[in-house]
Design a protein around this nucleic acid. Structure first.
Lengths: 214, 214
DNA sequence: TTCTGTGAATACCTTCACAGCG
DNA sequence: CGCTGTGAAGGTATTCACAGAA
């Protein structure tokens, strides 16, 4: 791997390539060229080659990339060789939906706990067996269960404080759903998904067409 | 407004500015400079001025921007003057969580229906009064209720077909949660949120630190 | 003087185009 | 030959720096 720092655009595309390679591998396809891979996402083939070249020389000139091998390597690059343990903070609707979402496990992420502060919910077990734990037990549970990431699904007002507690518990990666900008500590990463802002982007698009911008 | 096309980076930031301006307005602040606004998101002040300049000259030299006025204008630019009616396709956990999420209404989006294909759920009403409607009635309901946007929360396998039906029903803006790339029709827009890919980005970050990339 | 609005400079991301290997 | 890997070119986004208005 080269010393340069990799952009998020690249890592995002790696995930996309990985999905496609997994499907191809399952189909029994053994080799794929950057060109035919590119066509699937209407993307430039040089883009794919550049993305991969950051991490080594995986291809065979005149042939293409060996599907299974490339799949394994990208999986490795993304740190997906082993299952990642994830927790959800906040046992409201969104939190519970996240805890139960089947897609995570399929991609190597296992939700092992939901943290809550409402006594009524603490101690219960969610449908698929995920325990609802007191937020007070965050630190011990994180350590005991080897939790590496947290998904924050608490009200906006609580988000900042919750992130601090999560960092204090030793977690260094957060996926934040609260509509609040939180600044990561050095050595940590926060990725935010703001549903209202996404909808506002769509609203802008619709408004533009309406006023004839086309 | 200038003829240039506006990048998504800009519109995304406009949403962020809007949030901040709303808070300032509520606090009674009357004027804000690009510099002090920039400090809140550690962002460059020229960035903010450029973003706003695409749409007109809103500021007063030597003073800054009038908070309430700028708030109204951005709101207008983003098409947020009126409430937007939104539907959810898919009545699973995620779909129901989206239907009940209070944050949308606060930002001008109202979820007015959840579309489902399971007969057991159709005809029921979700907690906050959102009706669960048969996907077969999509077109009529969209027309009758003036629905402008759809949030897709169906399994990956169904996503593509569902998007087609949504477009056929006259909706031109989609927020897609299914882990599938869907190509928008001309004149439509699809914004995708892929939870697993977001987690993979975090996994890459953690993997990098672990191998000493720092 | 302060702070906007904006051309110029820079940094970054993508695409082109081709040398070179299998 | 076909396709990768990559320097060079082309675009786009961000930042700098300053002229000019209040």
């Amino acid at each position: 791997m080269k010393a340069e720092k990799i952009s998020e655009f690249t890592t995002h595309r790696l995930s996309i390539y990985l999905r496609c390679l997994a499907a191809l591998d399952e189909e029994g396809v053994e080799t794929i060229s950057s060109k035919s891979l590119a066509e699937r996402f209407n993307l430039n083939s040089a883009q794919i080659r550049k993305d991969l070249a950051y991490f080594g020389q995986f291809g065979v000139r005149g042939v293409g990339y060996p599907v299974r091998d490339l799949r394994r390597r990208i999986s490795n690059i993304l740190g997906l060789d082993s299952l990642h343990k994830v927790c959800v903070i906040g046992g409201g609707n969104l939190g519970m939906a996240l805890a139960e979402y089947g897609g995570f496990l399929q991609h190597g992420f296992s939700v092992v706990a939901v943290f809550e502060n409402s006594p009524a919910k603490i101690g219960t077990t969610w449908r698929n067996g995920v325990p609802v734990v007191s937020i007070g037990d965050l630190k011990e549970t994180v350590r005991a269960r080897g939790i590496e990431m947290a998904m924050i699904a608490v009200p906006a007002a609580a988000a900042r404080e919750v992130c601090e507690r999560v960092f204090d518990a030793g977690i260094r990666a957060i996926l934040n759903f609260a509509p609040v900008r939180v600044v990561p500590r050095p050595g940590t990463k926060i990725q935010s998904i703001d549903l209202s802002i996404s909808l506002e982007g769509l609203s802008f698009f619709l408004a533009g067409r309406a006023t004839g911008t086309r």
